[in-house]
Amino acid sequence: MNAFTKLIILAVLGLLTSCVQPSYNRTVVFELDAKAVKDIKTVGIRGNDKPLNWENDYPMQFDPKDSLYKATVTGKTGYLFTEFKFVVNGDFELKERDNRKVYFKNQDTIVYKATFDKLP
């Protein structure tokens, strides 16, 4: 076997045994205080990872018990965090600022509490 053939075999074996990042089901419970916004018609979330996207709102529902908008989002990811922004009446929060991030750590479910257009 010549050196070129050995190199090709090693390259193929390397591709076949390459590491694949494990992915996990992650759930984020979003709770949003939007009391400062007047005349709310729609509240949603847009973000990086499915089922979120940057083109359409993932709807949030108003909970009159605590006057918060809530949504539970579950997806499969191998990433350590995801990025998103809240949207009220089609208007993004935090204009010209970085996206919000939620870090998964080693938990399957994270509760993310926020106030519209304000970072913690």
Rank of each mutant, 00 (worst) to 15 (best):
A36E: 13
V87A: 05
D49W: 06
G78H: 01
N48F: 13
N56Y: 13
D39C: 09
N48P: 02
I40L: 07
Y58I: 01
M60L: 12
T74P: 08
W54Q: 04
Y79I: 06
Y69H: 04
K70A: 05
Y58V: 01
T72A: 06
F84H: 10
K41C: 02
T82N: 06
F84A: 09
L68I: 12
G44W: 05
D66Q: 12
K70P: 01
S67M: 12
W54S: 10
D63L: 13
Y79M: 13
K41W: 04
F84G: 13
F62P: 09
D57Q: 12
K70Y: 02
N48T: 15
G44H: 03
V43Q: 02
Y58W: 05
G44E: 09
K76C: 07
W54G: 08
K76D: 06
K70T: 10
R46E: 12
N48L: 14
Q61W: 09
A71V: 08
T72V: 08
N53S: 12
T82C: 05
G44Q: 09
T42Y: 04
Y69I: 06
K38Q: 13
G47W: 06
D66I: 09
G75F: 10
G75L: 08
P59L: 12
T77F: 13
K35R: 14
Y79G: 10
I40K: 11
K85N: 14
T72K: 11
T82L: 10
R46W: 02
K70V: 05
F84T: 07
P51F: 03
A71I: 04
K50F: 12
M60P: 03
P59T: 08
A34C: 02
L52A: 09
K35W: 05
D57H: 01
T72G: 03
P59M: 08
A34D: 00
D49Y: 11
T74E: 15
P51L: 03
D66N: 15
K85Q: 13
V37Y: 00
Q61R: 13
F86W: 07
P64V: 14
D33K: 07
D49C: 05
L80N: 11
A36H: 09
V73A: 10
P64F: 08
V43M: 02
P59C: 07
T74W: 08
L68T: 15
F62G: 06
T77R: 13
I40D: 06
K70Q: 09
D33F: 05
R46N: 02
M60F: 03
T72L: 02
K41S: 14
N56R: 11
N56V: 08
L68V: 10
Y79W: 15
I45Y: 00
D63G: 03
R46C: 07
E55K: 15
V88A: 02
V87R: 04
T82W: 01
S67T: 11
Q61T: 15
M60K: 01
K41E: 10
G78Q: 03
D33P: 03
I45Q: 00
K65C: 08
D57V: 02
T82R: 07
K85V: 15
S67D: 13
G47N: 05
K65F: 12
D49K: 07
